[in-house]
Measured scan of single mutants.
Amino acid sequence: MQAFVKTLTGKTITLEVEPSDTIENVKAKIQDKEGIPPDQQRLIFAGKQLEDGRTLSDYNIQKESTLHLVLR
């Protein structure tokens, strides 16, 4: 499924993900596309910070959801 990641600069990245993907996995995909190390990434969805060990389905993130990427 497709999900979108919006950065603070307003850029939107499109990712191909599965509901079973972990947040860690998603961060690795963002690193592949953008070169941002996962340890600098914080992903926010519905106002919550997403934890590495959880999956997209844990957070009820469905296709075409938009996550927000904040860098630390």
Rank of each mutant, 00 (worst) to 15 (best):
Q2S: 10
A3L: 15
A3V: 15
A3E: 02
F4L: 08
F4W: 06
V5C: 04
K6M: 10
K6W: 06
T7K: 04
T7A: 05
L8V: 14
T9F: 13
K11F: 09
T12P: 03
T12M: 12
I13F: 11
I13K: 01
I13T: 03
T14G: 05
T14E: 09
T14P: 06
L15Y: 01
L15A: 01
L15I: 13
E16K: 09
E16T: 13
V17Y: 04
D21Y: 07
D21E: 09
D21S: 07
T22W: 05
E24H: 12
E24W: 15
K27Y: 04
K27C: 02
A28E: 10
A28W: 11
K29S: 04
K29P: 00
K29N: 03
I30P: 01
Q31M: 13
Q31A: 13
K33T: 08
K33D: 03
E34I: 15
G35M: 05
I36V: 08
I36N: 03
P37C: 07
P37N: 07
P37H: 12
P38K: 14
P38H: 10
Q40I: 12
Q40S: 09
Q40D: 10
Q40F: 09
Q40Y: 10
Q41R: 01
R42M: 15
L43V: 04
I44L: 11
I44Y: 15
F45K: 03
F45P: 01
A46D: 14
A46N: 15
A46M: 14
G47E: 05
G47V: 02
G47R: 04
G47A: 04
K48L: 12
K48Q: 14
K48D: 06
K48E: 13
Q49S: 12
Q49R: 10
L50D: 00
L50Q: 01
L50H: 00
E51C: 10
E51F: 07
D52W: 03
D52A: 07
G53P: 06
R54T: 07
R54Q: 09
R54K: 14
T55C: 06
L56N: 01
S57Q: 13
D58V: 03
D58W: 11
Y59A: 02
Y59F: 04
N60F: 08
N60Q: 09
I61H: 03
I61Q: 03
Q62C: 08
Q62G: 14
Q62K: 12
Q62E: 11
T66C: 08
T66R: 06
L67S: 01
L67C: 01
H68L: 15
H68R: 07
H68N: 08
L69V: 05
V70R: 10
L71V: 12
L71N: 07
L71A: 08
L71T: 10
R72I: 14
R72F: 11
R72W: 12
R72N: 13
R72A: 14
